[in-house]
């Protein structure tokens, strides 16, 4: 059963198609990431799926409810962590959570549980908290009614390394408890670690969807081999020319299809040419490589999201 289904979603702002025929499905219990540069249409997609912005085309279902026809049911069954930590500055952490609980008809006892679980300073005003702590409170607020699906829009944006790591760990724990997580990010480290599946979005369109390894295969799936040998002769470079050699400061960088075949070749060359191998390491293509490959040649475009001027 799918937690989220998007079919041919379209959103137009001032003639610009911010979201242009986007389709994907998110399975229950999955962490699904929408990865893309600024202005790709990620936030607009989240706003459409969460009922914050209307659809100009297509259809979408969250927890089996239409985001157009059953908006209130969709809203009651999701938790949303927006890009900005947008709780109320003058209210304490506990007051903010109580307020959210009342909006969702959630039991007030849940507030105490969340304060304890997230180790939140219940009596401090939200406006006085650090960015990392604010993020934790906003995540807690999204969980106050225990929704099965969580939307997180750039959850680690503007956080320091430690706070970002804590948030990522928190997302992992929530997913292990059975929450479906839909997150948007343009941070490669996040995309590399968290999601089960990734959709790469660019210029309002999904350019690829799949598991990390599936996406890596899309760009050829070659393994990067870093090799430091002494001496490097022109003869050696000629023998390795099929592997597209280049120098990257640490030695030779080669792109290899089959590592074991390459090691065999290297051993025979070593015997024949008499060089010494100082260092050899392999590296699989990263999500970043996939992202750059699939979105190359595209300049960032300004955010077309209708929410920005608000």
């Amino acid at each position: 059963m799918n937690a989220i289904v998007a079919r041919e979603l379209v959103k137009v702002y001032d003639g610009l198609r911010a979201v242009d025929g986007v389709s994907f499905e998110v399975k229950r219990g999955e962490i699904f990431a929408l990865l893309g540069p600024n202005g790709a249409g990620k936030t607009t997609t989240v706003r459409m799926l969460t009922g914050l912005t209307g659809l100009d085309g297509g259809e979408a279902y969250v927890n089996g409810h239409s985001v157009v026809l059953e908006k209130l049911k969709v809203k009651a069954s999701i938790g949303v962590v927006p890009e900005n930590s947008n709780l109320y500055d003058e209210l304490t952490v506990e007051e903010n959570l109580r307020f959210t609980a009342r909006l969702y008809n959630a039991p007030i006892e849940r507030v105490g549980e969340l304060v304890e679980e997230f180790r939140l300073p219940a009596n401090r005003k939200f406006g006085q908290l650090s960015a990392g702590l604010k993020r934790r409170v906003v995540i807690a607020a999204a969980l106050v009614h225990d929704p099965p699906v969580l939307f997180l829009d750039e959850p680690t944006k503007a956080l320091d390394v430690r706070s970002a790591k804590a948030v990522r760990e928190m997302i992992g724990i929530l997913n292990k408890r059975g929450k479906t997580v839909f997150l948007t990010t343009h941070t490669m480290s996040e995309a590399e670690k968290l999601p089960h599946r990734i959709a790469i979005m660019n210029r309002g369109k999904i350019v690829a969807v799949g598991k990390r390894n599936e996406l890596k295969r899309l760009i050829g799936g070659k393994v990067k081999v870093r090799l430091s040998v002494d001496p490097i002769s022109s003869h050696l470079l000629r023998e390795l020319s099929a592997y597209d050699p280049s120098f990257d400061g640490e030695g030779l960088l080669l792109h290899v299809d089959d590592v074991s075949d390459f090691i065999g070749l290297l051993c025979s060359l070593k015997e024949r040419l008499g060089f010494r191998v100082n260092h050899i390491s392999t590296e699989l293509p990263s999500v970043e490589d996939v992202f750059i490959e699939l979105t190359s040649g595209e300049e960032e475009r300004p955010c077309a999201c209708g929410g920005c001027p608000l």
Binding site: L52, L72, K73, N84, N86
Partner: peptide
């Protein structure tokens, strides 16, 4: 301006 209005719009109201 602070986008806290969206809190209300995201709730089942």
């Amino acid at each position: 301006r602070l986008r806290t209005f969206e809190r209300l719009l995201l709730a089942p109201l």
